[in-house]
């Protein structure tokens, strides 16, 4: 059974994000890049499916510049068998739909039985690619899954989604697209031998032309990024408690207009 895992490389969660001189982008110098954590759950789950079945092929795929190879290499170090890197400057400003179109083209070339991705990337939090990919492929899709079981014949997958107060269970025919929620699993650490082994695994470079994408213009473009306005300083009300309380109530009512 072939499983394709779509991953995105994002800034480390501890990054202090700054807007760059071009207000449409963030300052990327000095950023440590990681696999988006929800996508790590996806990689882990794909590896577990393969291990449980005793055979299979896990292919990691990602879109982005050269540095994305490190994220793919991390997935290979965890145990993925090979990787596909959609690396083309023409796709630099890709929105979610263009990303999904590129992934759909890769999926058609690879024809996996299952695609797993994270429920959203932790940088832009759009959370759209998984569903868009399924739509483009005409495949069923279950998002935010907490558990899954692929049947013995690899014909269907049963998934559990977390809903308020319980679990919602679905059966989906394969091929299908799943997106991983936190709690699906605990991703493994790449072992040192895994890291060394990853150097020998294939990362296939793919250009937009190889995917026959045609019009590669994004429909969604970033106009500007704005930092949050600095928080106004707090105010300490001095004086006797009796008067201070009166002033506090007045300030909450008249200045802050919250009561």
């Amino acid at each position: 059974m072939k499983i394709l895992v779509a991953i995105k490389q994002v800034p480390d969660t501890a990054t202090q994000v700054k807007i760059s001189g071009d207000p449409k982008a963030i300052e990327t110098s000095g950023i440590t890049w990681i696999i988006s954590p929800y996508d790590e759950f996806a990689v882990e789950e794909a590896l577990r499916i393969k291990e449980k079945r005793g055979q299979g092929d896990v292919v990691a795929v990602s879109l982005g510049p050269d540095r994305v190879k490190e994220a793919l290499r991390s997935a290979l170090a965890m145990g993925a068998d090979r990787a596909v890197h959609v690396n083309d400057p023409a796709l630099a400003g890709a929105d979610t739909l263009l990303t999904a179109r590129a992934l759909a083209a890769v999926v058609k070339q690879e024809s996996p039985a299952l695609v797993i991705c994270g429920r959203q990337a932790i940088d832009d939090d759009m959370g759209a690619v998984g569903a868009q990919l399924a739509e483009l492929l005409g495949w069923p899709c279950a998002s935010w899954i907490m558990e899954e079981t692929v049947d013995a014949d690899a014909k269907t997958v049963r998934v559990g989604r977390q809903v308020e107060g319980g679990l919602e269970v679905f059966d989906l025919p394969l091929p299908a697209v799943l997106s991983a929620q936190k709690g699906l699993n605990e991703p493994r650490y790449p072992t040192l031998k895994g890291i060394m082994g990853a150097k020998k695994k294939e990362i296939k470079d793919v250009k937009a032309a190889d995917l026959a994408l045609g019009d590669a213009a994004p429909q969604l473009t970033v106009t500007t990024l704005e930092a949050l306005p600095p928080r106004p300083p707090g105010r300490i009300i001095q004086g006797e408690v009796k008067d201070a309380v009166k002033e506090l109530v007045r300030a909450l009512r008249e200045d802050a207009k919250v009561i």
Partner: peptide, 14 residues
């Protein structure tokens, strides 16, 4: 090298 960084990061995370 890339693998040296990955090894360091893997152990750091661990």
């Amino acid at each position: 090298a890339e693998d040296e960084r990955m090894i360091r990061d893997a152990v750091r995370d661990w």
